[in-house]
Amino acid sequence: MPTDTKRLPVPETSICPSTLIEDISAKKLPLISNNKRRDDRLCTQLRHVYAKLKVISQAQGSAYIEIGNTKVICSVYGPREVKKRDEFSMDGQLCCDFKFATFSCPQRRSHLSDNEEKELSQQLLNALSPAVCLNKFPKARVEIFALVLENDGSAFSAAINCASLALVDASIELYDIPVAACVRYDGVNLIVDPQLNEEYSHQESNLSEENGQVLVAYLPVLKQISALNHVGCLSSKVLNQSMKLCIEATQKMHTIFQECIKEKVKSIMD
């Protein structure tokens, strides 16, 4: 792996001290007690959402989103001409880049994209491309950059939401606005929009047999699923239930985003 020597790297062998603490007290608490979650939310309650369009002036379109403490910024450049002849195609092309800022997670991320980020970039592309009218910009390419500034759980679904808002802001023609949501299953309860200490991680020791997390990106008007991703051991019955919950959550989010877009349009008209 080539490293950039111009930057100040941390020593290769350093580790984050929090990994050495075996029982982080928050992790030991049950996900649900007295029908309330660790942050006093109900099972199907979303965190507060704040979204803003046009936050980066030089980009064609951009958006910023906060879901609880999870913060993501996304910019869209293009459509731009494809330079290389071998990349020519009659449909437009999308290019996605998903990145965690180095300071966004409890453990430091490297400034070069790791495999997880590269894979999530591909998933972001798969989630957005069913919604974009690619035939409207032949021989051209749209570039989408999503950056997670703070990861407090459900960061990837926030990135999908942020990217679709940025596409709207860039006036790229869309069939529908992809909206994403996460659901976590801990063996007993299904909880919507997990925060970082509620997210599924295979490292936790006191897991029951059936456990996992599902992400769905949904096109609410077309009623189609554009991305689906799950980790952890789940039966097909629980998968069905969590998919339904995800879709319900995306519909709530969708109304919020519609308001946000309406406001933006109003401000342009005035």
Binding site: N126, Q224, S226, H230, C233, S236
Partner: peptide, 21 residues
Amino acid sequence: DGMITASQKKCSGSLQESSVL
């Protein structure tokens, strides 16, 4: 035993909920 440990939708198309199930 029929449990699913990971799954993902791939390719650029979208799917209806009923067909996913």
